[in-house]
Design a binder for these strands. Structure first.
Ligand SMILES: [Mn+2]
Ligand SMILES: [Mn+2]
Ligand SMILES: [Zn+2]
Ligand SMILES: [Zn+2]
Lengths: 150, 150
DNA sequence: TATTAAAATGATTCTTACTATCAATTGACA
DNA sequence: TGTCAATTGATAGTAAGAATCATTTTAATA
């Protein structure tokens, strides 16, 4: 399944149109896999290829891409939304580790939530379709700095 | 372990003072267990008992209580922070179910994250001290409305 | 290809959750 | 009770993001 081939179809299905601005924003996200970009950061990158684009359009496009489940919205409690390319069709989400000391963000490749979701669905009769999971703690580097000899 | 008895001690340990405003804000949170109050909502409630309090003080107090791990900060992506009384000492967190259709929030009493955290700690050498977990999906009521006969 | 209606854009203003500032007040300790 | 640092309330300021609207562009049709 390729995002680029179906992007126009996904838009058409909802009555939306494919514009150069929308392509340019999606391109930025595709060229920054592993990053967690703010809307302002996306705006700065997209202006390099599409200098006439307005910030409002980036805000609108990023909301559209989230609605289409092409990208995921994240928040690391710094007051602004961040975005990353979603897994697009796979029911596999990755999680984030947030170091309380250095603020670095690490990716957890594994999902590992299936068993929990089954328990939740059974007990609470709630059909889970998505989840957002953040782990807070101490990263390897920071732990080494605090305990140099261990 | 009682919050009220140790609140003053927890403050003193960090050089903070116990004020009537701080007590009043904590009282509001204690009297609204199960709710997820915004700072503005806390302000409205606390004014009933403490009419002279300023909004800025509520913002400051709520940050202080979070720093002391007495309350937890939540966000349901509506643009403002929400707070609830923490479990205070117990290593037991509850999660939240968010219905995509009616917007209702449900509480998951069980933590269920221990096994996952052990896997994460082992593979990523990241010492997990906290987590925030949200499940999105369809609640029981909304599912019944969409499938009346099943 | 030209026509056309609806959707999208960019510039701008507006909203609002939250922060910073500061003079006045209060709490903890001696 | 007196001292002084911490705290408060009023107010102004900040910034992410939403709303507005005249102009432009897209995609379907002829
Ligand atoms: Mn990520
Ligand atoms: Mn809760
Ligand atoms: Zn670290
Ligand atoms: Zn519902």
């Amino acid at each position: 399944m390729n995002i680029n081939n179906t992007f126009k179809d996904m838009l058409k299905e909802k009555g939306y149109k494919l514009t150069t601005q929308r392509r340019a924003v999606l391109d930025v996200l595709q060229n920054h896999i592993g990053d967690h970009l703010t809307t302002e950061e996306i705006y700065q990158y997209v202006k390099l290829q599409c200098p006439e684009i307005g910030l409002a359009t980036v805000y609108r496009t990023v909301q559209l891409l989230e609605e289409l489940k092409i990208i995921d919205r994240l928040t690391f409690d710094d007051g602004c939304n961040r975005y990353e390319l979603g897994t697009f069709g796979e029911d596999h989400h990755h999680h984030h580790l947030i170091c309380d000391f250095c603020g670095q963000i690490f990716e957890v490749e594994e999902d590992l939530m299936d068993a929990i979701e089954i328990q939740v669905e059974k007990k609470y009769k709630f059909q889970v379709t998505n989840h957002k999971v953040k782990f807070y703690g101490i990263c390897h580097q920071c732990h080494a700095k605090k305990h140099p000899t261990s």
